[in-house]
């Protein structure tokens, strides 16, 4: 039951995030990434342009702007959504830290999951091969495996 709940929470997050995937540019995604949605007249209008509606989750390969193009552009939501958003944007750094069994992204994930970072670090390194079973692992799979592990 818990697992189903998790899955649906994550899936909701995926929908919210992936509909806003966009290309990298140095100013973020322009007005679309502003935190002040709905307050000023221009913004909803521009949002319609910046959201290109691509569906699908982030796979391995550094990008930025996934979160920057989220209409909220902020760290938000419950554990599952926050973890997914984090891993979508930091999968390469997380993989690096996971292989070493320590690092900033593991500390961050431990914080999001509210678990002890050292215990988590060991578990993650031990299960590196499980977490990154395939070279084409995507952020949703990774999020689910980490939540099960932790």
């Amino acid at each position: 039951m818990k697992k189903i709940y998790l899955l649906s929470a994550v899936a909701a997050g995926v929908l919210a995030l992936s509909s806003n995937a966009n290309a990298y540019d140095s100013t973020g995604c322009g007005l679309g990434s502003m935190a002040w949605r709905g307050q000023s007249g221009i913004i909803p209008q521009v949002l319609a342009v910046t959201t290109n509606g691509t569906f699908g989750t982030q796979t391995f390969g550094i990008t930025t702007g996934t979160s920057g193009c989220d209409p909220n552009g902020r760290v938000s939501g419950g554990t599952g959504r926050m973890l997914l958003a984090f891993l979508e944007n930091n999968m390469e750094q997380f993989a690096y830290d996971a292989a070493q069994g320590n690092g900033e992204t593991i500390k961050t994930v431990a914080g999001i999951l509210n678990v002890d970072e050292n215990t988590l670090a060991v578990k993650i390194q031990d299960n590196f091969g499980v977490l990154f079973a395939s070279n084409d692992v995507d952020a949703v799979d990774l999020t689910l495996s980490i939540m099960q592990l932790a």
């Binding site: 973020g28 990434s33 502003m34 979160s67 920057g68 902020r74 958003a85 984090f86």
Partner: peptide, 8 residues
């Protein structure tokens, strides 16, 4: 202003 997570 734009606001983004620091990891970005």
């Amino acid at each position: 202003f734009t606001v983004k997570p620091y990891y970005d």
